[in-house]
Design a protein around this nucleic acid. Structure first.
Lengths: 203, 203
DNA sequence: TTTAAAATTAATCATTTGTTTAAAATAATT
DNA sequence: AATTATTTTAAACAAATGATTAATTTTAAA
Protein backbone atom coordinates (compact mmCIF):
# COMPACT_ATOMS: atom_id res chain seq x y z
CA UNK A 1 0.00 0.00 0.00
CA UNK A 2 2.24 2.79 1.28
CA UNK A 3 5.35 0.65 1.22
CA UNK A 4 7.42 2.63 -1.24
CA UNK A 5 7.60 5.63 1.08
CA UNK A 6 11.23 6.55 1.60
CA UNK A 7 13.01 6.16 4.92
CA UNK A 8 13.62 9.87 4.99
CA UNK A 9 9.91 10.53 4.65
CA UNK A 10 9.01 7.89 7.22
CA UNK A 11 11.21 9.64 9.77
CA UNK A 12 9.70 13.02 9.09
CA UNK A 13 6.16 11.74 9.40
CA UNK A 14 6.94 9.95 12.65
CA UNK A 15 8.69 13.04 13.96
CA UNK A 16 5.74 15.15 13.01
CA UNK A 17 3.33 12.88 14.82
CA UNK A 18 5.30 12.84 18.06
CA UNK A 19 6.50 16.44 18.02
CA UNK A 20 2.94 17.62 17.54
CA UNK A 21 1.74 15.65 20.51
CA UNK A 22 4.64 15.94 22.94
CA UNK A 23 6.44 19.07 21.81
CA UNK A 24 10.18 19.40 21.22
CA UNK A 25 11.34 18.90 24.80
CA UNK A 26 8.94 16.04 25.44
CA UNK A 27 10.03 14.07 22.39
CA UNK A 28 12.86 11.54 22.45
CA UNK A 29 14.66 10.65 19.26
CA UNK A 30 14.26 7.01 20.23
CA UNK A 31 10.48 7.41 20.15
CA UNK A 32 10.65 8.89 16.68
CA UNK A 33 12.85 6.03 15.50
CA UNK A 34 10.48 3.46 16.96
CA UNK A 35 7.41 5.16 15.49
CA UNK A 36 9.12 5.24 12.10
CA UNK A 37 10.31 1.66 12.45
CA UNK A 38 13.90 2.58 11.70
CA UNK A 39 17.26 2.43 13.40
CA UNK A 40 17.99 5.35 15.69
CA UNK A 41 21.15 6.30 13.83
CA UNK A 42 19.21 6.91 10.63
CA UNK A 43 17.61 9.95 12.17
CA UNK A 44 20.97 11.66 12.43
CA UNK A 45 22.05 10.20 9.11
CA UNK A 46 19.21 11.92 7.27
CA UNK A 47 18.52 14.97 9.40
CA UNK A 48 21.77 15.74 11.26
CA UNK A 49 20.06 16.43 14.60
CA UNK A 50 16.81 16.39 16.52
CA UNK A 51 16.77 20.16 16.29
CA UNK A 52 17.10 20.24 12.49
CA UNK A 53 14.31 17.70 12.14
CA UNK A 54 12.16 19.71 14.49
CA UNK A 55 12.68 22.89 12.52
CA UNK A 56 11.45 21.19 9.38
CA UNK A 57 8.30 19.96 11.11
CA UNK A 58 7.79 23.38 12.64
CA UNK A 59 8.12 25.22 9.35
CA UNK A 60 5.79 22.88 7.53
CA UNK A 61 3.19 23.24 10.26
CA UNK A 62 3.45 27.00 10.19
CA UNK A 63 3.08 27.00 6.46
CA UNK A 64 0.17 24.59 6.63
CA UNK A 65 -1.75 26.82 8.99
CA UNK A 66 -0.80 30.26 7.66
CA UNK A 67 -0.21 30.24 3.91
CA UNK A 68 -3.70 29.60 2.56
CA UNK A 69 -5.35 31.86 5.10
CA UNK A 70 -3.03 34.79 4.41
CA UNK A 71 -3.55 34.42 0.69
CA UNK A 72 -7.30 34.34 1.17
CA UNK A 73 -7.28 37.29 3.55
CA UNK A 74 -5.19 39.25 1.11
CA UNK A 75 -7.25 38.51 -1.98
CA UNK A 76 -8.48 41.78 -3.45
CA UNK A 77 -11.22 40.29 -5.58
CA UNK A 78 -13.37 38.60 -2.93
CA UNK A 79 -15.80 40.60 -0.84
CA UNK A 80 -15.58 40.82 2.94
CA UNK A 81 -18.73 38.75 3.20
CA UNK A 82 -17.43 35.76 1.25
CA UNK A 83 -14.01 36.17 2.77
CA UNK A 84 -15.32 35.51 6.26
CA UNK A 85 -16.96 32.32 5.01
CA UNK A 86 -13.80 31.26 3.23
CA UNK A 87 -11.47 31.78 6.17
CA UNK A 88 -13.68 30.01 8.69
CA UNK A 89 -14.15 27.09 6.32
CA UNK A 90 -10.47 26.90 5.41
CA UNK A 91 -9.44 26.77 9.07
CA UNK A 92 -12.12 24.25 9.91
CA UNK A 93 -10.92 21.99 7.10
CA UNK A 94 -7.25 22.22 8.04
CA UNK A 95 -7.94 21.72 11.74
CA UNK A 96 -10.24 18.75 11.30
CA UNK A 97 -7.29 17.09 9.56
CA UNK A 98 -4.63 18.46 11.95
CA UNK A 99 -6.27 19.34 15.25
CA UNK A 100 -3.00 19.48 17.16
CA UNK A 101 -1.24 22.13 15.10
CA UNK A 102 -2.37 25.29 16.93
CA UNK A 103 -1.51 24.08 20.42
CA UNK A 104 1.79 22.73 19.13
CA UNK A 105 2.85 25.94 17.44
CA UNK A 106 1.66 28.27 20.16
CA UNK A 107 3.18 26.13 22.89
CA UNK A 108 6.58 25.98 21.23
CA UNK A 109 6.60 29.72 20.67
CA UNK A 110 5.68 30.37 24.29
CA UNK A 111 8.45 28.01 25.44
CA UNK A 112 11.03 29.55 23.17
CA UNK A 113 10.00 33.00 21.99
CA UNK A 114 13.48 34.19 20.96
CA UNK A 115 13.79 31.38 18.43
CA UNK A 116 10.78 32.61 16.49
CA UNK A 117 11.25 36.34 16.72
CA UNK A 118 13.19 36.35 13.48
CA UNK A 119 11.60 33.29 11.89
CA UNK A 120 8.03 34.52 11.60
CA UNK A 121 8.74 38.17 12.18
CA UNK A 122 6.64 40.41 10.00
CA UNK A 123 6.54 44.11 10.66
CA UNK A 124 3.59 45.50 12.50
CA UNK A 125 2.82 47.69 9.52
CA UNK A 126 2.87 44.93 6.93
CA UNK A 127 0.17 43.07 8.79
CA UNK A 128 -2.13 46.07 8.64
CA UNK A 129 -1.66 46.09 4.89
CA UNK A 130 -3.33 42.71 4.47
CA UNK A 131 -6.32 43.49 2.32
CA UNK A 132 -9.04 42.19 4.63
CA UNK A 133 -7.86 44.72 7.17
CA UNK A 134 -8.69 47.58 4.83
CA UNK A 135 -12.01 45.97 3.90
CA UNK A 136 -13.10 45.80 7.52
CA UNK A 137 -11.93 49.33 8.16
CA UNK A 138 -13.92 50.64 5.23
CA UNK A 139 -16.99 48.76 6.28
CA UNK A 140 -16.73 50.02 9.86
CA UNK A 141 -16.61 53.58 8.56
CA UNK A 142 -19.74 52.92 6.54
CA UNK A 143 -21.64 51.90 9.66
CA UNK A 144 -20.13 54.61 11.85
CA UNK A 145 -17.88 52.39 13.95
CA UNK A 146 -14.55 53.69 12.70
CA UNK A 147 -13.29 54.06 16.27
CA UNK A 148 -13.12 50.29 16.78
CA UNK A 149 -9.95 48.38 15.92
CA UNK A 150 -10.62 46.12 12.89
CA UNK A 151 -8.27 43.57 14.36
CA UNK A 152 -10.92 42.63 16.93
CA UNK A 153 -13.07 41.00 14.28
CA UNK A 154 -10.21 39.05 12.78
CA UNK A 155 -9.34 37.76 16.22
CA UNK A 156 -12.99 36.95 16.83
CA UNK A 157 -13.33 34.83 13.73
CA UNK A 158 -10.05 33.06 14.29
CA UNK A 159 -10.56 32.49 18.00
CA UNK A 160 -14.06 31.08 17.66
CA UNK A 161 -12.87 28.76 14.90
CA UNK A 162 -9.60 27.60 16.39
CA UNK A 163 -10.41 27.53 20.10
CA UNK A 164 -12.45 24.31 20.12
CA UNK A 165 -9.42 22.53 18.70
CA UNK A 166 -7.09 24.10 21.24
CA UNK A 167 -9.42 23.16 24.06
CA UNK A 168 -10.16 19.72 22.64
CA UNK A 169 -7.78 17.75 24.89
CA UNK A 170 -9.15 19.48 27.97
CA UNK A 171 -12.74 19.09 26.82
CA UNK A 172 -12.10 15.40 26.35
CA UNK A 173 -10.61 15.18 29.83
CA UNK A 174 -13.48 17.01 31.45
CA UNK A 175 -16.46 15.72 29.54
CA UNK A 176 -15.41 12.43 27.89
CA UNK A 177 -16.92 13.82 24.71
CA UNK A 178 -16.91 11.47 21.72
CA UNK A 179 -14.94 12.20 18.57
CA UNK A 180 -18.15 12.17 16.55
CA UNK A 181 -19.85 14.66 18.86
CA UNK A 182 -16.86 16.96 18.64
CA UNK A 183 -16.92 16.76 14.88
CA UNK A 184 -20.58 17.61 14.75
CA UNK A 185 -20.06 20.53 17.10
CA UNK A 186 -17.35 21.91 14.83
CA UNK A 187 -19.47 21.38 11.73
CA UNK A 188 -22.25 23.39 13.33
CA UNK A 189 -19.81 26.18 14.11
CA UNK A 190 -18.56 26.19 10.53
CA UNK A 191 -21.93 27.57 9.53
CA UNK A 192 -22.69 29.61 12.65
CA UNK A 193 -19.48 31.58 13.07
CA UNK A 194 -19.84 33.52 9.80
CA UNK A 195 -23.39 34.41 10.83
CA UNK A 196 -22.21 35.62 14.22
CA UNK A 197 -19.36 37.65 12.80
CA UNK A 198 -21.64 39.26 10.27
CA UNK A 199 -24.09 40.20 12.98
CA UNK A 200 -21.24 41.81 14.92
CA UNK A 201 -20.39 44.10 12.04
CA UNK A 202 -23.98 44.40 10.88
CA UNK A 203 -23.24 42.85 7.52
CA UNK B 1 11.10 43.36 51.47
CA UNK B 2 10.07 39.78 50.70
CA UNK B 3 12.94 38.24 52.58
CA UNK B 4 11.00 36.17 55.09
CA UNK B 5 9.50 34.00 52.37
CA UNK B 6 10.23 30.37 53.18
CA UNK B 7 12.56 28.23 51.12
CA UNK B 8 9.68 25.90 50.39
CA UNK B 9 7.64 28.76 48.97
CA UNK B 10 10.60 30.13 47.02
CA UNK B 11 10.98 26.80 45.27
CA UNK B 12 7.31 26.58 44.39
CA UNK B 13 7.24 30.08 42.97
CA UNK B 14 10.35 29.47 40.90
CA UNK B 15 8.92 26.18 39.71
CA UNK B 16 5.68 27.85 38.79
CA UNK B 17 7.47 30.49 36.75
CA UNK B 18 9.54 28.03 34.76
CA UNK B 19 6.95 25.28 34.39
CA UNK B 20 4.46 27.80 33.03
CA UNK B 21 6.89 29.00 30.43
CA UNK B 22 8.71 25.83 29.43
CA UNK B 23 6.28 23.08 30.40
CA UNK B 24 7.13 19.96 32.37
CA UNK B 25 9.45 18.33 29.85
CA UNK B 26 11.23 21.56 29.03
CA UNK B 27 12.01 22.39 32.63
CA UNK B 28 15.17 21.25 34.38
CA UNK B 29 15.26 20.99 38.14
CA UNK B 30 18.54 22.86 38.04
CA UNK B 31 16.81 25.82 36.43
CA UNK B 32 14.22 25.86 39.17
CA UNK B 33 16.93 25.73 41.83
CA UNK B 34 18.82 28.58 40.19
CA UNK B 35 15.69 30.68 39.78
CA UNK B 36 14.84 30.10 43.45
CA UNK B 37 18.42 30.73 44.52
CA UNK B 38 18.65 27.51 46.46
CA UNK B 39 20.71 24.35 46.43
CA UNK B 40 19.45 21.73 43.99
CA UNK B 41 19.02 19.10 46.67
CA UNK B 42 16.49 21.23 48.52
CA UNK B 43 14.00 20.71 45.74
CA UNK B 44 13.86 17.01 46.47
CA UNK B 45 14.13 17.64 50.19
CA UNK B 46 10.91 19.66 50.22
CA UNK B 47 8.97 18.21 47.30
CA UNK B 48 10.29 14.68 46.83
CA UNK B 49 10.46 14.89 43.05
CA UNK B 50 10.10 17.12 40.01
CA UNK B 51 6.84 15.36 39.24
CA UNK B 52 5.33 16.03 42.67
CA UNK B 53 6.30 19.68 42.45
CA UNK B 54 4.80 19.88 39.01
CA UNK B 55 1.52 18.39 40.14
CA UNK B 56 1.21 21.06 42.80
CA UNK B 57 1.81 23.84 40.28
CA UNK B 58 -0.60 22.19 37.89
CA UNK B 59 -3.38 21.85 40.43
CA UNK B 60 -3.03 25.41 41.65
CA UNK B 61 -3.15 26.71 38.09
CA UNK B 62 -6.22 24.65 37.30
CA UNK B 63 -7.91 25.93 40.41
CA UNK B 64 -6.89 29.48 39.64
CA UNK B 65 -8.46 29.37 36.22
CA UNK B 66 -11.53 27.24 36.90
CA UNK B 67 -12.87 27.72 40.43
CA UNK B 68 -14.18 31.28 40.31
CA UNK B 69 -15.60 30.89 36.84
CA UNK B 70 -17.49 27.70 37.66
CA UNK B 71 -18.92 29.25 40.79
CA UNK B 72 -20.02 32.29 38.82
CA UNK B 73 -21.48 30.24 36.00
CA UNK B 74 -23.37 28.13 38.50
CA UNK B 75 -24.78 31.00 40.55
CA UNK B 76 -28.58 30.78 40.48
CA UNK B 77 -29.22 34.35 41.59
CA UNK B 78 -27.50 36.30 38.80
CA UNK B 79 -29.17 36.81 35.45
CA UNK B 80 -27.73 35.56 32.19
CA UNK B 81 -27.03 39.12 31.19
CA UNK B 82 -24.87 40.01 34.18
CA UNK B 83 -23.33 36.57 34.18
CA UNK B 84 -21.83 37.11 30.75
CA UNK B 85 -20.27 40.34 31.96
CA UNK B 86 -18.96 38.70 35.11
CA UNK B 87 -17.34 35.76 33.38
CA UNK B 88 -15.62 37.82 30.71
CA UNK B 89 -14.34 40.25 33.33
CA UNK B 90 -13.22 37.52 35.69
CA UNK B 91 -11.22 35.79 32.96
CA UNK B 92 -9.73 39.04 31.75
CA UNK B 93 -8.57 39.86 35.28
CA UNK B 94 -7.04 36.47 35.93
CA UNK B 95 -5.34 36.35 32.54
CA UNK B 96 -3.88 39.82 32.71
CA UNK B 97 -2.14 38.62 35.87
CA UNK B 98 -1.32 35.13 34.54
CA UNK B 99 -1.28 35.22 30.77
CA UNK B 100 0.59 31.93 30.43
CA UNK B 101 -1.83 29.71 32.29
CA UNK B 102 -4.12 28.64 29.44
CA UNK B 103 -1.36 27.63 27.05
CA UNK B 104 0.45 25.87 29.88
CA UNK B 105 -2.57 23.83 30.99
CA UNK B 106 -3.80 23.00 27.53
CA UNK B 107 -0.34 22.08 26.33
CA UNK B 108 0.33 19.74 29.22
CA UNK B 109 -3.01 18.03 28.76
CA UNK B 110 -2.39 17.57 25.05
CA UNK B 111 1.06 16.13 25.79
CA UNK B 112 -0.23 13.80 28.49
CA UNK B 113 -3.97 13.25 28.20
CA UNK B 114 -4.12 10.04 30.25
CA UNK B 115 -2.72 11.80 33.29
CA UNK B 116 -5.65 14.20 33.43
CA UNK B 117 -8.49 11.91 32.46
CA UNK B 118 -9.13 11.14 36.11
CA UNK B 119 -7.84 14.39 37.61
CA UNK B 120 -10.30 16.83 36.06
CA UNK B 121 -12.82 14.27 34.91
CA UNK B 122 -16.36 15.49 35.37
CA UNK B 123 -19.16 13.57 33.80
CA UNK B 124 -20.65 14.87 30.61
CA UNK B 125 -24.00 15.17 32.32
CA UNK B 126 -22.77 17.13 35.32
CA UNK B 127 -21.42 19.86 33.05
CA UNK B 128 -24.82 20.30 31.47
CA UNK B 129 -26.23 20.86 34.94
CA UNK B 130 -24.18 24.03 35.47
CA UNK B 131 -26.83 26.68 35.89
CA UNK B 132 -25.77 29.01 33.09
CA UNK B 133 -26.39 26.14 30.72
CA UNK B 134 -30.05 26.02 31.68
CA UNK B 135 -30.29 29.81 31.53
CA UNK B 136 -29.05 29.89 27.95
CA UNK B 137 -31.29 27.01 26.99
CA UNK B 138 -34.35 28.78 28.39
CA UNK B 139 -33.44 31.99 26.66
CA UNK B 140 -32.92 30.25 23.35
CA UNK B 141 -36.38 28.74 23.60
CA UNK B 142 -37.80 32.17 24.24
CA UNK B 143 -36.36 33.47 20.98
CA UNK B 144 -37.15 30.33 19.01
CA UNK B 145 -33.60 29.01 18.68
CA UNK B 146 -33.98 25.92 20.82
CA UNK B 147 -32.38 23.77 18.13
CA UNK B 148 -28.96 25.34 18.71
CA UNK B 149 -26.56 23.87 21.27
CA UNK B 150 -26.19 26.29 24.22
CA UNK B 151 -22.59 25.22 24.55
CA UNK B 152 -21.71 27.24 21.44
CA UNK B 153 -22.23 30.50 23.28
CA UNK B 154 -20.19 29.45 26.28
CA UNK B 155 -17.36 28.49 23.96
CA UNK B 156 -17.76 31.78 22.12
CA UNK B 157 -17.41 33.90 25.24
CA UNK B 158 -14.50 31.88 26.56
CA UNK B 159 -12.68 31.64 23.24
CA UNK B 160 -12.91 35.34 22.45
CA UNK B 161 -11.70 36.19 25.93
CA UNK B 162 -8.92 33.64 26.28
CA UNK B 163 -7.61 33.41 22.74
CA UNK B 164 -5.66 36.68 22.68
CA UNK B 165 -3.66 35.39 25.64
CA UNK B 166 -3.07 32.05 24.00
CA UNK B 167 -1.96 33.72 20.81
CA UNK B 168 0.06 36.39 22.61
CA UNK B 169 3.51 34.81 22.14
CA UNK B 170 2.83 34.32 18.45
CA UNK B 171 1.38 37.79 18.05
CA UNK B 172 4.49 39.18 19.67
CA UNK B 173 6.68 37.15 17.32
CA UNK B 174 4.79 38.23 14.23
CA UNK B 175 3.98 41.84 14.97
CA UNK B 176 6.41 43.00 17.66
CA UNK B 177 3.37 44.39 19.47
CA UNK B 178 4.09 46.29 22.68
CA UNK B 179 2.89 45.10 26.06
CA UNK B 180 0.90 48.32 26.50
CA UNK B 181 -0.83 47.92 23.15
CA UNK B 182 -1.76 44.36 24.00
CA UNK B 183 -3.15 45.46 27.32
CA UNK B 184 -5.26 48.12 25.69
CA UNK B 185 -6.53 45.66 23.10
CA UNK B 186 -7.64 43.30 25.87
CA UNK B 187 -9.26 46.11 27.83
CA UNK B 188 -11.29 47.04 24.75
CA UNK B 189 -12.38 43.45 24.39
CA UNK B 190 -13.44 43.31 28.02
CA UNK B 191 -16.24 45.68 27.15
CA UNK B 192 -16.90 44.53 23.60
CA UNK B 193 -17.21 40.78 24.08
CA UNK B 194 -20.33 40.96 26.27
CA UNK B 195 -21.93 43.20 23.66
CA UNK B 196 -21.10 40.77 20.89
CA UNK B 197 -22.33 37.76 22.83
CA UNK B 198 -25.56 39.51 23.66
CA UNK B 199 -26.12 40.41 20.03
CA UNK B 200 -25.62 36.76 19.11
CA UNK B 201 -28.40 35.63 21.41
CA UNK B 202 -30.46 38.77 20.84
CA UNK B 203 -30.31 39.77 24.49
C1' DT C 1 30.99 -9.42 -12.35
C1' DT C 2 33.57 -6.19 -9.87
C1' DT C 3 33.73 -2.00 -7.61
C1' DA C 4 32.08 2.07 -5.54
C1' DA C 5 28.47 4.40 -3.19
C1' DA C 6 24.60 4.57 -0.23
C1' DA C 7 21.86 2.80 3.42
C1' DT C 8 21.39 0.30 7.67
C1' DT C 9 22.78 -1.69 12.05
C1' DA C 10 24.64 -2.60 16.76
C1' DA C 11 27.45 -0.79 19.94
C1' DT C 12 29.39 2.95 22.26
C1' DC C 13 30.28 7.78 23.78
C1' DA C 14 29.66 11.97 26.15
C1' DT C 15 26.55 14.87 28.26
C1' DT C 16 22.55 15.98 30.62
C1' DT C 17 19.46 15.39 34.25
C1' DG C 18 16.68 13.78 38.29
C1' DT C 19 17.88 12.10 42.53
C1' DT C 20 20.55 10.59 46.57
C1' DT C 21 24.07 10.66 50.13
C1' DA C 22 26.81 12.02 53.75
C1' DA C 23 28.70 15.73 55.91
C1' DA C 24 28.34 20.53 57.57
C1' DA C 25 25.81 24.44 59.26
C1' DT C 26 22.00 26.34 61.58
C1' DA C 27 18.09 26.39 64.67
C1' DA C 28 15.40 24.51 68.37
C1' DT C 29 14.98 22.05 72.68
C1' DT C 30 16.29 20.43 77.13
C1' DA D 1 25.76 24.81 77.51
C1' DA D 2 24.82 20.47 75.61
C1' DT D 3 22.04 17.86 72.72
C1' DT D 4 18.87 17.01 69.21
C1' DA D 5 16.41 18.14 65.16
C1' DT D 6 16.20 20.69 61.02
C1' DT D 7 18.07 22.80 57.07
C1' DT D 8 21.61 23.38 53.69
C1' DT D 9 25.56 22.07 50.91
C1' DA D 10 28.93 19.78 47.77
C1' DA D 11 29.69 15.75 45.61
C1' DA D 12 28.44 11.80 43.40
C1' DC D 13 25.30 8.29 41.17
C1' DA D 14 22.49 6.11 37.89
C1' DA D 15 19.57 6.43 34.20
C1' DA D 16 18.25 8.69 30.07
C1' DT D 17 19.30 10.74 25.86
C1' DG D 18 21.30 12.89 21.56
C1' DA D 19 24.87 11.77 18.78
C1' DT D 20 28.76 9.13 16.67
C1' DT D 21 31.49 5.28 15.00
C1' DA D 22 32.82 1.40 12.61
C1' DA D 23 31.29 -2.53 10.59
C1' DT D 24 27.77 -4.76 7.55
C1' DT D 25 24.33 -5.00 4.11
C1' DT D 26 22.11 -3.33 0.12
C1' DT D 27 21.95 -0.79 -4.11
C1' DA D 28 23.96 1.42 -8.12
C1' DA D 29 27.61 2.11 -11.41
C1' DA D 30 31.38 0.68 -14.31
Amino acid sequence: MEKDISTEEKIKEAARKIFLQKGFAGTRTRDIAEEAGINLALLNYYYRSKEKLFEIVMEESLKQILSKIIITANNETTSLLEKIDLIVNLYTDVLLENPQIPLFLLGEIQANPEKFKQKVGISHLVLKEVFIFRQIKEHLQKIGMENINPFHFIINAISMTIFPFIAKPMLQSITHIQESEFRQFVEERRKLIPVWIKSMVRL
